[in-house]
Amino acid sequence: MAQQVFAWGYNNCGQVGSGSTANQPTPRKVTNCLHIKRVVSIACGQTSSMAVLDNGEVYGWGYNGNGQLGLGNNGNQLTPVRVAALHSVCVNQIVCGYAHTLALTDEGLLYAWGANTYGQLGTGNKNNLLSPAHIMVEKERVVEIAACHSAHTSAAKTQGGHVYMWGQCRGQSVTLPHLTHFSSTDDVFACFATPAVTWRLLSVEHEDFLTVAESLKKEFDSPETADLKFRIDGKYIHVHKAVLKIRCEHFRSMFQSYWNEDMKEVIEIDQFSYPVYRAFLQYLYTDAVDLPPEDAIGLLDLATSYCENRLKKLCQHIIKRGITVENAFSLFSAAVRYDAESLNEWAFGSLKFCVYVHFLEVKNHIIRL
C-alpha cells in the first residue's frame, strides 16, 4: 500500500505541491510523480517541501531561490521533482532548515545543500549550494541529523554518541561541524538556534559541571588563576585576594589600599609552619580541615591569632579525637595556652585517664617482673 503525502496551507511558492500557487485551505494529496509511490519521510523548510521514498529517492518542491531543493538550479517547483544528484545513494532521513536541506544516507553519509549565509551547510565557507555536497563529520558514521525550519542551524549525532552543530550560533557563524557537550541534537536548537527551540525539558549540565563550592576547592593553590602567593618555609601557596577578603576578616583588613600587603604579589609568613598555613588557607576555600592533632595545635594558634572562632572549634574537635597517652600532656598544654575552654576540660579529663592507664601499665609491668 502506498504511503501518500497530503499538504495544505499557504502556497505562495508552490510548497503545497498542487501545481499552482493558490493557497490550499484543506488537505490535498500531492500527486504527480509521487503518485502510487511509497513515501517514508517528509520535511518542510520555510517555503519548501522535501520527501524521501522507501527506495531512498528524494523529491523536492516549492521555493528554490537558494537551491534548497537540490536540483542544480534556483527555480521554484510547483510539483515534486526528484533530486537527481542523489541517484547513487540511498537516503533514509531528510531535514530542512529555514532555507537549507540535510540528507542522511543508509551508510551514515551526510549531504547538504541550499542557503549557507551562516555556514549552515558545514562546508567551511558561506557559499550557497544548488546541489547536494558530502559533509564530513570527523570521519564518524552519522546516525541522526536535525534542522529547524525557523533557524539557520544544523546538527548531527554520530554512532559514537557525539553531537555536532554548525551554522548560526547566537549571532556567530560556525562554518564547520563543531563538537558539543550535548547528548541530544534537540539541545543544540534549545541553546544555539535563533530563536531557541525545544520540545522537551532541556539539560545544559554536563559531566564537567562544578558547583560554586567545588569550583572554589578546585582553584585553591592554582597558579593559573591566582593573583597572590604566600611564601612559607620556602614554599609557595597560590590564592585569590577576593576569596580571602570574603572569607576572613583578617585578610579583609590586610588588603586595604593603605596597607603595604595590598600591593604585594608575594607575602612572607614566618610565624606559622607551611602545613599549618596551607591548611588554614585551604579551609577558607573548602570549610574543612584535614590535619593530624599535633598540627591542629598550630592551626589552633593561628585561628586564635586571626580571631577565627569557627576554625578554633574545628581544631578542638580534631584534637579531641586524637588524644593519646603519648600526646595528652602536650594537647592539654595547648588547650590552656589558647584558652580553649571546652578542649581544656576534655583534655584535662583525658589527661587524667591517660595517666591512670599509664599507671596501670607500669604497675602490671612491675608485677610481671
Rank of each mutant, 00 (worst) to 15 (best):
A147R: 00
A340R: 02
N260H: 06
T105F: 06
Q3A: 11
E268W: 06
H317W: 11
L311H: 03
A85R: 00
R278L: 06
F329C: 11
G122H: 02
V204D: 10
D295M: 12
F192V: 12
A85S: 02
T79R: 11
N64R: 02
G9W: 04
L129V: 07
H178R: 12
K218P: 07
R337Q: 15
T185Y: 09
L86Q: 03
V188H: 10
L216D: 07
F220S: 05
A288L: 14
G17R: 14
R141K: 15
F280E: 01
L300F: 10
G97V: 05
V243S: 07
K245R: 15
N76Q: 10
D227M: 05
F359T: 10
F189I: 11
Y356H: 09
Q282L: 05
M165L: 15
V336A: 08
Y63F: 13
Q46F: 13
L302G: 02
L129Q: 15
K229V: 14
H317G: 08
F220P: 05
L104P: 05
A43M: 04
I42G: 06
P292C: 01
T123Y: 02
L314K: 14
C191D: 12
L302C: 01
Y285P: 01
K312G: 07
V266D: 09
G97R: 00
G17C: 12
G122M: 06
G14C: 10
H87R: 12
F332K: 13
Y63T: 09
T31C: 10
T194R: 02
L110T: 11
W61K: 08
M263A: 12
L331K: 13
V143Y: 03
L78T: 02
N55P: 00
G70N: 07
N32W: 15
R82S: 08
G14F: 08
K157D: 06
E57A: 13
P80N: 05
L244G: 10
T123R: 01
W113P: 01
V336H: 03
M136V: 14
F353L: 14
E345Q: 14
L86P: 02
N12Y: 01
L281Y: 06
I267W: 09
L130R: 00
S273F: 03
T123P: 02
L202R: 14
G19R: 05
G17A: 14
I297V: 15
Q3P: 00
W166Q: 08
I267C: 06
R200D: 13
K217D: 09
V52T: 07
G171T: 01
F272M: 05
A340G: 07
M1R: 10
S184C: 13
H240F: 04
N344V: 04
Q15V: 10
A190T: 06
V52W: 04
